Amino acid sequence: MEVRTIKVFTTVDNINLHTQVVDMSMTYGQQFGPTYLDGADVTKIKPHNSHEGKTFYVLPNDDTLRVEAFEYYHTTDPSFLGRYMSALNHTKKWKYPQVNGLTSIKWADNNCYLATALLTLQQIELKFNPPALQDAYYRARAGEAANFCALILAYCNKTVGELGDVRETMSYLFQHANLDSCKRVLNVVCKTCGQQQTTLKGVEAVMYMGTLSYEQFKKGVQIPCTCGKQATKYLVQQESPFVMMSAPPAQYELKHGTFTCASEYTGNYQCGHYKHITSKETLYCIDGALLTKSSEYKGPITDVFYKENSYTTTIK
C-alpha cells in the first residue's frame, strides 16, 4: 500500500517557510505537534488534498525554529505562539472599519479597549522592536488589523473576551517599542525636605499616572512627601515624541487643539466601556464603527496623549 502524501510549508514567522512532505494517514499533531492554519487549530486533523502548498504555523520545537521565533517575536515564552494563534482565530472574524481616516474595530468580545489602543497607536510616533509587531502594525494602518490585535493580546497575556485596560495595554506595548531616546527629568520640591531631581528613561519617561493635564504637570502637581507634608512635583525636561497622561476616570474637559487623542471610560472596574476622542479640525468621538463630532467635550476621561518633541522648564 502506497503512502499518500502532500507537500506543505511549516513556519513560526510566515517569513521562513520549511518544506514538509506530510503523510495523509496521520494527523498534523502526530507529525508536527500543535499546528495552526489561519489561526485555526488543526492539530487533530489529517492532511487533505486542499492543504497542498498551504502554510501551517507550528510551535518552535527545534533550534532553527526557536531562533526564527525569537528573532521575529522577541520572546522565548513557549506558550506565546499558541496564544497568538488562538487569538487570531477570533480577531480574523472582527470587522476593521476605516473611521475618520483611522483603522478602528467594530465592537465584539469586549474589544473596546483594543480599538482605543489601536486608534491611539496610529496617532503617536512609535516604532516597535519585534519585527512581528512592526509588520502587523503597518498592515493594521492599511486596514488589516487582525494579526496586530492578536499579537497585542498575546504580548499582554490576554484572551479574547476578557476586559482590558488601555493604560495597561499601552504599557505592555511600550515595553516592546523603541523608547531608548526618551528621557524625563522631574523635580520634587518640599518646604521641609528641599528639592530632589529624578531622571527617568524609556517607558517611565512617557507615562504618568495622577493627572490628565500635561500643562498642569509642567506647572506642578501636589504629591505627598515622605515627611508627610505636601510637596510639588513638576516637569523639568521632556525628550520624547509623545507623552501619555493618565488618571482614574473623572469628568474632564478636553479643549480642541490642546491634545492629540484621549480615552474615555464609562462604567466601573468590573464592567465598563471605552471610547476614543481625537482632536482634528474639530473633536471626534470614535466608538467602534461609530463616529460623532463636537466642538467641545466633557466626560469621564482616563488617558490623554500629547505630541511632544523637546521641553525644558522655565521655572527657576
Rank of each mutant, 00 (worst) to 15 (best):
E264Q: 04
C225L: 02
K293I: 10
S246F: 05
V221F: 11
T43C: 10
H256S: 09
E162M: 08
K183D: 05
Y284E: 09
L212C: 12
S294N: 11
M244I: 03
G29F: 08
L173E: 01
H18L: 09
L163M: 15
T258H: 15
Q123P: 01
D23V: 11
G164K: 06
R4F: 09
I315V: 14
V221Y: 06
R139T: 08
F217L: 12
L283H: 03
M209Y: 10
V243Q: 05
V160R: 02
D109S: 10
S213M: 05
C285E: 12
S246W: 02
D303W: 01
N178R: 11
T199M: 08
D287N: 09
T266L: 08
G39W: 03
V42I: 12
L186I: 15
T27Y: 15
V3P: 10
H90D: 08
L200C: 15
D62S: 09
L65Y: 09
K201E: 15
A250K: 12
M85W: 01
Y28K: 00
D77I: 01
C225E: 01
V21T: 13
G228K: 05
A140S: 05
N187V: 10
Q134H: 14
T116E: 12
F217K: 06
S171I: 09
T192A: 11
I223H: 12
P78D: 12
G53K: 13
Q195E: 15
L163G: 15
K298Q: 15
G299M: 06
W107H: 15
C190H: 03
Q237I: 05
F128Y: 07
A146D: 08
L235Q: 03
T302A: 08
G143P: 00
Y311C: 07
G267L: 11
Y57V: 12
Y36W: 15
L121M: 12
S50I: 12
Y311A: 08
I286E: 08
T292V: 10
Y274R: 04
Q134A: 11
K201R: 12
A115P: 01
L235F: 06
E204S: 13
Y252S: 07
F70H: 10
T55C: 10
N111L: 01
L102Q: 08
K280Y: 05
A142S: 13
P300C: 15
C227F: 03
V42L: 12
V243E: 07
P224S: 13
H18Y: 06
K218S: 04
K307N: 14
Y284S: 08
A247P: 04
R167S: 08
L119K: 04
T43N: 06
K275F: 00
Y84W: 03
K7C: 15
Y172L: 13
C156R: 04
K127S: 10
T91M: 02
H273L: 05
G39F: 07
E281W: 00
E144F: 07
F217R: 05
A150P: 01
T192L: 08
L153I: 13
F56H: 00
C112E: 15
T282L: 12
G164N: 12
S104H: 01
G161Y: 03
L290P: 06
I15P: 00
Q98T: 13
Q270F: 11
K293L: 09
A69W: 04
K201N: 11
V188C: 08
L119D: 06
I277L: 05
Y311I: 07
Y284F: 08
G299S: 08
D23S: 08
P248R: 09
V160H: 12
C261N: 06
E308R: 05
L88T: 02
A289F: 06
Q196N: 10
K275H: 04
V203Q: 09
D13R: 03
Y137V: 04
P130F: 00
F80E: 01
E144Q: 08
Q238K: 05
E68F: 07
D13A: 02
R141F: 06
N16A: 07
Q237A: 12
A177C: 15
E239M: 09
Y28H: 02
Y284H: 09
Q98G: 04
V12Q: 11
K229F: 07
N100R: 13
D109W: 01
Y311T: 06
G228M: 04
L133W: 00
L179E: 03
E308V: 11
T169K: 00
G257T: 08
Y28F: 10
L126F: 13
Q20V: 10
N110P: 00
V243T: 06
F305L: 06
I152F: 02
A247T: 09
A40I: 09
S295L: 13
E144M: 11
E264W: 04
A115V: 02
L65G: 08
R139I: 07
Q222G: 14
N309T: 14
A69Q: 15
T278F: 10
Q20R: 14
D165R: 09
E68V: 08
V185K: 08
Y96E: 01
L133I: 04
E2I: 09
E296M: 15
D63V: 08
E125N: 10
L118F: 13
A177Q: 01
W94G: 00
Y208C: 11
F80W: 00
N157Y: 02
S181W: 13
R184T: 07
A136G: 06
E162T: 07
F9H: 08
N309L: 12
E253H: 12
Y265F: 13
H18K: 14
T292P: 05
V221R: 04
Y214T: 05
A262C: 02
Q216Y: 03
T282V: 13
A69M: 15
T64V: 14
Y155E: 00
Q230Y: 15
L186N: 06
G101R: 05
P249T: 09
Y73P: 00
Y297K: 01
V188F: 09
P78T: 10
F148K: 00
V12C: 10
V42K: 08
M209T: 12
P224C: 09
L254G: 04
F174V: 01
T64L: 13
K93D: 08
F70P: 03
T120N: 08
A262W: 01
D135H: 14
C190I: 03
K293F: 05
A69L: 12
